[in-house]
Simulated assay, not measured.
Amino acid sequence: MIKLWQTTGLDMPHIKTGLIACILLSMTVSTSVAASNMVLSGEYTFYTDAMSLEMIGQNICMFPDAQSGKQIPRSKSDERDLWFCFSDYQQARKALDIPAKPPKQGCGYSGKLTVEVADYHINELQNDDFDIAKLVKVIDHDKPEVIECQP
């Protein structure tokens, strides 16, 4: 492929530099990372129905309670519900004793938990992406309960 500046004899490294800067800026604007590990309590959900899998994929997500959720560094203007998904589905499923197969009657599993997480990435864009965090350790969790399907 012949580049424009090669055919015209012009050297245009500033265009490449500007493009790289724009890409890096878009990456840093879309997410930020919590600096330290956090211990969070709340509820988790793992939906197995077709519509949920299409919307959020095969993810186990947590909804921290109001008290422990205060540790998550979100801007004051961010009024979205506080929730995130674990970055490693298989690790989280095994650690929370969630069955590998969907329930025979129901649309997934849920339960209460207390966990330690790290590498919390906050999605700051108004899009379909969600926050993610690495599950470091399960401190406590309930036995998974079947989520009833909504009509």
Rank of each mutant, 00 (worst) to 15 (best):
V117C: 00
G108D: 03
I132P: 01
A133C: 11
R74C: 01
I132H: 11
Y47T: 07
R80T: 13
I72V: 15
I98S: 08
P103K: 12
K94E: 15
I122S: 00
K3F: 11
P102S: 07
G9I: 08
G106W: 11
D128Y: 07
A95V: 01
D97V: 02
Q105L: 09
P64H: 10
C61P: 04
C149F: 09
L10C: 08
A34C: 07
D140W: 04
D128K: 09
M62C: 03
L113C: 06
W83C: 05
A34L: 05
S41K: 06
V117H: 00
D88W: 00
S26G: 06
A21E: 11
Y47P: 02
G42K: 02
L113Q: 10
L25S: 14
S30T: 02
C107D: 09
D140S: 14
C61Y: 13
E79I: 12
M12G: 02
T17I: 11
P151A: 07
S87T: 15
T17Q: 10
I2A: 06
I72R: 05
L82N: 13
M55P: 00
D65I: 07
I72E: 09
N37G: 07
K101L: 02
V29Y: 12
S30Q: 14
V39H: 10
S32L: 05
G42E: 03
M51L: 10
V146C: 03
I20G: 01
V117S: 00
T45G: 03
G108Q: 04
D97C: 07
E116M: 00
V138I: 10
G18T: 13
L19A: 13
T28C: 13
V39E: 14
K3I: 03
M12I: 13
P99R: 04
V39N: 14
D142H: 00
G9N: 03
S30A: 12
K70N: 13
K112A: 09
I15Q: 06
Q58V: 06
A34F: 06
I2L: 09
Q105K: 15
L135P: 10
I60W: 07
E43W: 12
Q58T: 15
A133H: 12
D88K: 01
G69S: 06
I139L: 12
S52C: 00
E79D: 15
K70T: 14
Q58M: 09
Q6C: 03
L10M: 11
T17V: 12
C107A: 11
C149L: 05
D49T: 08
T45F: 05
P99K: 04
P64I: 13
Y89W: 09
D142E: 05
V39T: 15
D128I: 04
L135K: 11
H121L: 04
I56Q: 01
M1G: 13
K16W: 08
Y120E: 03
I56F: 00
I132L: 06
E145H: 04
E148G: 08
S77R: 07
I72Q: 06
F130V: 14
A34G: 14
L53Y: 10
G57H: 06
K104R: 09
P99H: 05
S32N: 08
A92S: 15
E148T: 07
F84K: 06
